[in-house]
Amino acid sequence: MASHPKDVVITDEHPKTLLLQKHADYIVGYSKKKEDYEFTMTEHFRMSGMYWGITAVDLLSQLERMDRSQIIEFVLQCQDQTRGGFSPSLGHDAHLLYTLSAVQLLVILDSIEEADVDGVVKFIVGLQNEDGSFSGDQWGEVDTRFSFCAVACLALLKRLDAINTDKAVEFVMKCQNVDGGFGTRPGSESHAGQIYCCVGLLSITGQLHRINGDLLGWWLCERQLPSGGLNGRPEKLPDVCYSWWVLASLTVLGRLHWINSSKMRLFIMATQDPETGGFTDRPGDMVDLYHTLFGLAGLSLLGETGLKQINPVFCMPQHVLDRISVSVQIMST
């Protein structure tokens, strides 16, 4: 096909192989630069930042370089004693987004029993609304992302019975659009990140049969642009984080082969920064932890050697889920 109006060009200058050690050094180094502007300005999502870093460094088999006990201590300090949820950082308010990150961190570090698990469950149960949806916190914002956070958290804690999962599923199905995709709320435009959350929720609850795999799988594989990169919605620029949202969803639907994996791999490789280590959204931009995890996780789904296997629903190393015996549904094809 002719050149795409919204795409990038990959050249010979861009990295072609995985700069594994650079990435590990970048992540380990990031956690030590607490005086940086970057570090201060990201405090409001610190918990997620730590989850991205820890998961990435585990995929790279260098988890032992991180200060395990310090991380656990920080996470535990962020649990709201009365409400039960976790805040992104000290002094901030508890929210479902950071509660999932905190639970993921504690499960990866095998220390979930040190948290007040009943408190977490109580927090999540209290956020389910009458229609089955979830609010992120007491201020009432509703989003299918929060539905995923709630269900994923409870699955990791083996307490799914605490909420009404039938209603949670019904709400997610109301957010499905005619293109087979899902949005934030009923009637909202389909978006790959949102699709990941909804497909993940249906996988955890064993309800994948509600999805038309061919229709949604096609929408997802249409996200691949001539550069090999994936965008999140039609007519948008490619971004390496969609190598996660889209590839993970396709994996769950049993249709990962519908995208061109060698071109996908080349695009992800080109988003590495050979100077600083880490991945960016598009070649030539600034790196961050978020894109670093999703770049590595996408490569792991494509079977890159040197990386541990990632679970497509929880975005956690597969060995962790095997250890706690949590499995997900994958559409059989």
Partner: peptide, 16 residues
């Protein structure tokens, strides 16, 4: 032939 990136999607649709 036209849309090589999605070659395998079309192959699966032929099978269907």
């Amino acid at each position: 032939e036209l849309d090589v990136l999605r070659n395998k999607y079309y192959a699966d649709m032929k099978s269907k």
